[in-house]
Design a protein around this nucleic acid. Structure first.
Lengths: 229, 229
DNA sequence: GTCTATAAACAGATAGAC
DNA sequence: GTCTATCTGTTTATAGAC
């Protein structure tokens, strides 16, 4: 046991231990495991082992396993909000329909590219989907911090692009169908790989998917454009 | 303990016990709990309690918890295949593009209506999504029995409707985006309810969603129709 | 802040009576 | 086929040394 103690000391400098390094490592490890196998299926021992931390450190830093879950939700919401924010939330809402469509396309591409191609997105998406499944404090956090602001902006852009009311049910539901198409390729990835005879979803395969989804966006806008076109 | 024994006897007639009544009750209870909380988060004791069966009956009938999981996958695949089969698989593939589109619309409506409005669909969809997440024997079963045949037929219909090759990447991927849109409204239901200010997704709300998804299907076919239109 | 050691509850599986 | 009782291992949480 003194041998293990020494090994742990080698891995971690005093400076790392002084900052929130262990905290971050725990959240990172938990996110991977919660996403991969689910919250209940993951033991605190596994998390601690992957984070090179002690089991008791979870209780110390987060109060318990549940606290770690909420810390993960917060981390994911921030991460995705930053990502989508750069593409969607940062821009002003243009008055021109074509300009709005271009921003939508760019945002959709950025989001879809991250979700579909990035390896980290696997666990992030899986974790999110599990948490979003049922009401609770974690869902409230994700909704308020991420879903609500992004969806609202998406509707505003769709509104300008089509010339319709951003608050109409059609526009609001359409924003969900866009998200649904992207998310499906992450959730149903194994099925997609089998059916498409793909070994992986690399840049080429992602381009095919992006082209289709952007095409669907354009087709929706085209089909739902009101009067002033 | 003899009192409990007597109570169990009252609940179950000898005829029920003779048939696979307990088996069915166990699968039914497990499906609800696996869908609701996930496989690992569900204890065999909970399942047995909900099914009004004994804990040991799971090992007796299914060999263990894992066997029960596979029995659930089989039951769900059969159920959905029957549902979708009536709308999609039963019909001949028409040569006429408009006829193909009509069958597609009817099938999409039937599927979406079930997934979105039926209470049982909640746990069925949640269970499926969890199992579809990662490779394994359960996924193979669901893929071979349900996803592959349904997707193939969907592509054939989309092929006729657009005049394109049913085996082209665009058509195959488009079939996934259709499924993705529907599934999203089950998975993200809580978020949709919040954002739409709906208390529930009843007939009226489902009609709104169905109209949008069918509209997206039409827009896709319109935008991707090849030469011969 | 990090560690070991342990408590207290609970998991899935099974033996054997009926 | 169904039941009780129990075995064996694992879980989260925590007390207390360092």
């Amino acid at each position: 046991m003194t041998a293990e103690r020494r090994k742990a000391q080698e891995r971690k400098s005093p400076a790392e231990a002084a900052t929130g390094e262990t905290r971050l490592a725990l959240v990172d490890a938990a996110l991977q495991l919660f996403g991969d196998k689910g919250f209940e299926a993951t033991s605190t021992r596994e998390i601690a082992a992957r984070a090179n931390a002690n089991i008791a450190s979870i209780a110390y830093h987060f109060g318990g396993k549940q606290g770690l879950r909420e810390a993960c939700a917060r981390a994911v919401a921030m991460r995705l909000k930053t990502l989508v924010g750069e593409a969607i939330l940062a821009n002003e809402i243009p008055g021109d329909g074509d300009a709005a469509l271009r921003i939508l396309e760019a945002g959709l591409k950025a989001f879809a590219h991250f979700i579909i191609t990035r390896p980290e997105a696997r666990n992030i998406a899986a974790f999110m989907l599990r948490e979003i499944g049922r009401p609770g404090p974690t869902l409230d956090l994700i909704y308020g911090e991420l879903v609500d602001p992004v969806h609202t902006r998406l509707c505003e852009l769709l509104g300008v692009a089509t010339g319709r009311d951003p608050k109409s049910p059609t526009i609001k539901l359409a924003a969900f169908t866009l998200a649904g198409q992207v998310v499906y390729f992450r959730i149903g990835r194994e099925v997609v790989l089998k059916k498409m005879d793909w070994r992986e979803i690399g840049p080429d395969e992602a381009d095919d998917i992006l082209a289709l989804i952007v095409g669907n966006l354009r087709a929706f806008v085209e089909a739902n454009r009101s009067a002033s076109s």
